[in-house]
């Protein structure tokens, strides 16, 4: 079993290297946290291999320092659990994530989600362009995003935290909603479909800086 997961970790590393990158980032994605692996509490021993696999792309403890990989540390338990379930069921398509989760049980997914939800949310230090963040604020106001994500955009339970998330990831996933690449939240797709790409870009800037 362990061999399977080691192979999977290798697969992730390969997949991460081939992750599609935007024009903003032509260098290969940095794999944060190499050589800084944390000591996991005993209760996560049964998913330690999987968690270390996650760290390879999402950073040590999920504190992603790569703009294209979402921060998982401090994200909400139920949101993470639902995403893992959706990857496994194919409701959220991802060539990287689907092989990662296909053999995970619900209990394992819950444990992984619990681990990340109990970590601290990192500070990316991202500073947005004031003109773009102002445009993003107007766009999120029009979309009434606070109704679900709350005023601080820190989410709750099944609604993800957006504040301080990696900017490139935000832009990509919002565009994936718009373009029906990400299909596991139909209402989000409808909402993003009503915005122009420039508005979505501004939203990502605004939220990453929030």
């Amino acid at each position: 079993m362990k061999t399977v997961y080691l192979l999977r970790v290798l697969l992730i590393a390969i997949a991460c290297a081939g992750w599609p990158v935007s024009a903003r980032s032509e260098e290969p994605p940095r794999i944060p946290g190499a050589g800084e692996q944390p000591i996991l509490p005993d209760e996560y021993a049964s998913v330690s291999t999987e968690l270390f696999g996650c760290f390879d792309c999402h950073g040590v403890s999920g504190e992603s320092a790569d703009p294209e990989f979402p921060i998982l540390s401090g994200q909400h338990f139920y949101y993470l659990y639902v995403q893992l379930k959706d990857f496994k069921a194919g409701r959220r398509a991802s060539e990287i994530m689907q092989p990662m989760v296909e053999e995970l049980s619900k209990d394992q997914m819950k444990l992984i989600a619990t681990y990340f939800s109990e970590q601290e949310w990192p500070n990316t230090g991202f500073k947005g362009d004031p003109a773009i963040t102002a445009k993003g604020e107007t766009a999120t106001g029009a979309g009434q995003c606070v109704q679900c994500h709350r005023g601080g955009y820190d989410g709750d339970s099944r609604v993800p935290r957006l504040a301080g998330q990696q900017r490139e990831y935000l832009f990509k996933t919002l565009m994936d909603f718009k373009n029906k690449v990400r299909m596991n939240s139909p209402s989000k797709s409808s909402l993003m479909n009503s915005f122009e790409e420039a508005d979505i870009d501004a939203m990502a800037e605004y939220l990453a800086d929030f």
Binding site: G143, Q144, R158, S185, P186, S190
Partner: peptide
């Protein structure tokens, strides 16, 4: 999940 059948803006 949220099921609006569209969006309000």
């Amino acid at each position: 999940k949220l099921w609006l059948g569209g969006a309000f803006k």
